[in-house]
């Protein structure tokens, strides 16, 4: 993943607004290689994509306008699709995000905090780096051998 250079991804740039989430989803599902994933993996990739993007849109720039870039790398032979999301907002490492308490009942359960937790549990790899004043999150899903 980190060994993959940005040049190995196909990129889309969007304003950091909620409309970008759907545009990015359409971009990813339209990539050759996405359809090669089994349905269970496609949904995990879509979920991780939405969660990371919504996080950028809501929190990366606070009240300022911002941008995000979405890169997709597919490897149909191995059944792998990797997504890289970059933003120029405040530093945020999703790997350090505190995990929500899943045992609380409905009145005590916090609204929010679940998105990153779902990402961590859905993708096969999740990496974060801070470089050139950008947050760079990369995650991949890979077809299981028996699929």
């Amino acid at each position: 993943m980190k060994h993959l250079d940005d040049s190995q991804y196909t990129w889309l740039r969007e304003p950091a607004e909620l409309d970008a989430v759907e545009n990015c989803r359409v971009f990813v599902v339209g990539q050759p290689g996405f359809e090669a994933l089994p349905g269970s993996k496609r949904f995990k990739l879509e979920l991780a994509l939405e969660e990371v993007l919504v996080n950028v849109v809501h929190y990366a720039y606070k009240d300022e306008k911002g941008w995000l870039e979405l890169g997709v790398h597919t490897c149909p032979d191995q059944g792998t699709v990797c997504v890289r999301i970059k933003d120029g907002g405040h530093p945020f490492n999703p790997l350090l995000k505190e995990e929500p308490d899943l045992t609380l009942d409905i009145q005590d359960r916090q609204i929010g905090g679940l998105g990153i937790y779902l990402v961590k549990n859905m993708v096969d790899d999740l990496e974060y780096e801070r470089r050139d004043n950008m947050n760079v999150a990369t995650f991949c899903v890979t077809r299981d051998e028996q699929e």
């Binding site: 939405e50 919504v54 009145q107 609204i111």
Partner: peptide, 20 residues
């Protein structure tokens, strides 16, 4: 077909309001 954390959150908001 699909639910994300935003969908879960909307169920939680509704559930809290209704049980209150």
């Amino acid at each position: 077909d699909y639910i994300s954390s935003a969908g879960l959150r909307s169920l939680l908001v509704a559930g809290k309001r209704i049980s209150a």
